[in-house]
């Protein structure tokens, strides 16, 4: 048994794997937090300035839309490299967890903002009208009606974004971000240590599965339809 384990997992250093997993979780948590903080207001703004909405503003919507589309069309691997000077300015380093978070956020926030915009559009216009008729301010319409009504959609958007971020964190390994992706590239790929590759991929898979089922459960919990 012991012999079999040692042949199969000859190159595995579980402590390294543990550290890499921790890095991945930190990158994911940190970048998801900032993605939501930036992307949610951006999504709300996209929705409000959109055609036939409360603050309809053609030029502003077109501008926001364009910026979002540019950032979304840029391959993430290019974004990682292009962002390096800005990341250094922001965090003092382009390496490790801290160095990975800015490009992750810039990559994911526009994507998340679009999903938020779509979720808000799913809210029945009648709800907005009814809330206006109660004498609500625009701020109240957003916080008391729009966001609560779009909550299941926004939670689903967070789930999809978190999973996208998992694959982005793996890519961030290329520019020295650390984490499971870094391990997979340096050991699994470059040193042909298939066992490391398999273990990291399985761990990433488990992470995605957990995120998806937690997200789905929250969506079900908050859906009252």
């Amino acid at each position: 048994m012991q012999a079999l384990y040692e042949t199969l997992f000859a190159n595995i250093d579980w402590y390294d794997i543990w550290l890499a997993t921790l890095d991945t979780l930190l990158m994911l948590g940190g970048s998801l937090l900032f993605t939501i903080l930036l992307g949610l207001p951006l999504g709300v703004l996209l929705f409000l300035t959109g055609p036939r909405q409360l603050f309809e503003n053609g030029p502003l919507y077109a501008l926001l839309s364009f910026v979002v589309n540019v950032l979304r069309s840029l391959p993430f691997i290019i974004l990682l490299i292009v962002m390096i000077p800005f990341t250094v300015l922001l965090t003092g380093t382009s390496l490790g967890v801290a160095g990975a978070i800015p490009p992750l956020v810039v990559g994911a926030a526009p994507f998340f903002a679009r999903l938020v915009e779509t979720a808000l559009r799913e809210v029945d216009r009648g709800i907005i009208e009814a809330t206006q008729a109660m004498g609500a301010t625009t701020r109240q319409i957003i916080f008391a009606a729009l966001l609560p009504e779009a909550r299941p959609g926004i939670i689903a958007a967070i789930t999809v974004t978190a999973i996208t971020l998992v694959s982005y964190t793996a890519m961030a390994g290329v520019v020295g971000a650390g984490g499971l992706g870094d391990l997979a590239i340096r050991y699994g790929y470059q040193r042909f240590q298939t066992d490391v590759m398999v273990v990291t991929v399985v761990l990433l898979l488990v992470l995605v599965q957990v995120l998806q089922s937690v997200g789905d459960r929250l969506v079900t919990h908050f859906s009252r339809k």
Binding site: I127, A133, R224
Partner: peptide, 22 residues
């Protein structure tokens, strides 16, 4: 002024327009 005025005018709708989350 419009906000305060609207608080004195109730409205009901064909499709009720209740908040499903509340």
């Amino acid at each position: 002024g419009l906000r305060r005025f609207r608080q004195r005018v109730g409205m009901i709708f064909q499709h009720f327009n209740l908040l499903s989350s509340k």
